[in-house]
Write a protein that binds this DNA or RNA. Structure first.
Lengths: 265, 265
DNA sequence: CGCCACTTTGAATTAGCTCAAATTCCGTGG
DNA sequence: CCACGGAATTTGAGCTAATTCAAAGTGGCG
């Protein structure tokens, strides 16, 4: 019997028409769909899936590695970090999540979360029970498209991280990190010329594969060169006049490096 | 109208019952499903989805960044690398694919592949048109579970890469690389005590974020310490007596390093 | 106010990189 | 079959970017 598309509960039957209505404009193959912006996506999810809203205070653990996987989350406000811990205790920030990002995909394969999701800032997440999402997707290919796009984007994002860590010198990595932060804020519809880093230098360094001292020095250098400015008293508020300047800084760091051989072929 | 679950073509209708039959044993929620081994998974996919089999010769490009996304691939035999190219030309090997691995997920979000997939070794891939996969999934939640598990596993795998690059010194990174290679072979059901690296030192180094010289030195050191042995005259065949020895080597490299502060909280 | 966690900056150290040379391997053609 | 050439690999020697260690500065909060 087909568990999901013919659910025993009436839950799905109640939701599905709504989903269809909400996502009506997306009834095209995923490959030709124009991307929704995040505000719209959140609105659709909110209307269609009756998510369980949950406030997470700074420092709170949304889920921890090893916990049984049941629900996916979408971040509505705030900021979260994804921390992976190796069996020998090495800890690594493997992702930073902004408004509109999904959390928990890593749990699907094994039925158990593989990482910890920790709130860096107080915010609100929407919990979506995975089985219910699947049920709703069975009725609405558009919702399925949304889900797959989110997973796909995460895969792409993770690869960008690896690329940064592997190919950029420390200073450029920090600049690129800020650039992508600003980009994420822009996607979220928030102002991105002035950003507040709720992460410590140690956390940033861990994420970028360098020490906190190196992060500090890199930020100082960026400020010295006028690419960024420190706003406010604490040095956690950063003004980015122009994201182009950050990109230019990255290229400047890269210039003297030998161009790696062509890996294609 | 519901494009996928009520397809206009008869194609899906023809496939769907087959899928249901093939995957009958998996009609449980993903979170409680016992994982299939790769041979079984391949057999199921082969029986259920009528994939387009395609031989790729060493060096061939399966798909390239920028090409329109239409099909996902599953690697049946051989070995492929996923190469990401930044806008400034930096190239990065962001993944290595073994038997049973899926390729192309990165294309779903934007409808365009984000990376190049290049055959490192002659092999065979199975092409699955994404829209047809979706159609089949609409009829078979089990197949959807397979798809999501593959994506989820890729996300987990990518994070492991980032963890290695960020937290391990070069020697340990090479050891860990070999360990995971052996693990992948084991998963594929192939012998893994003796592995042949069809990648050049430069490719390995690129993937691991170090120079080819460093890879070479690390391999020499591993051989000197008896953790691996070079078989054959070309130094591309490597005997791994015991994957535990590789893990131990990693820990030995790690020992003198200060333990990073607890990032949780 | 005074503590504590975070940050900055400096100075010394080192892991990994760059550059260079020698060696091996393999395919090709005589 | 052997000689040759090109590509990949190994190994050595210096150099440099980033780390480690240390100390001083800053801000937030009870």
């Amino acid at each position: 019997m087909n568990l999901v598309s013919n659910p025993a509960t009436g839950h799905t039957a109640r939701l599905a028409p709504l989903v269809g209505a909400c996502l009506g404009s997306m009834q095209r193959p995923a490959s030709t769909r124009t991307p929704l912006d995040i505000a719209d996506t959140m609105k659709l999810l909110g209307n269609c899936l009756a998510p369980q809203r949950r406030v997470v205070r700074a420092g709170a653990v949304l889920y921890a590695a090893g916990e049984r996987f049941r629900t996916l989350y979408v971040l509505n406000t705030g900021l979260m970090k994804i921390v992976s811990t190796a069996s020998d205790g090495r800890e690594q920030v493997v992702g930073i999540k902004f408004r509109g990002d999904w959390l928990g995909f890593d749990g699907i394969a094994e039925g158990v979360y593989a990482c910890d999701a920790v709130a860096v800032d107080t915010g609100e997440v929407w919990g979506l029970v995975y089985d219910e999402v699947l049920a709703a997707c069975a009725e609405s290919p558009a919702l399925l498209g949304l889900l797959h796009a989110a997973m796909s984007r995460q895969i792409g994002r993770d690869r960008e991280s690896l690329m940064s860590v592997c190919t950029l010198p420390a200073d450029a990595r920090v600049a690129e990190f800020l650039r992508q932060w600003a980009e994420s804020l822009e996607r979220s519809g928030l102002r991105f010329d002035q950003i507040t880093l709720p992460l410590t230098r140690a956390e940033i360094g861990n994420f970028l594969g360098m020490t906190l001292e190196t992060v500090s020095r890199a930020l100082s250098k960026l400020a010295r060169e006028g690419v960024i400015d420190f706003a406010g008293r604490g040095r956690r508020d950063i003004c980015i006049g122009d994201t182009g300047a950050l990109a230019a800084f990255v290229q400047r760091c890269l210039a003297p490096v030998r161009t790696s051989a062509c890996l294609l072929q």
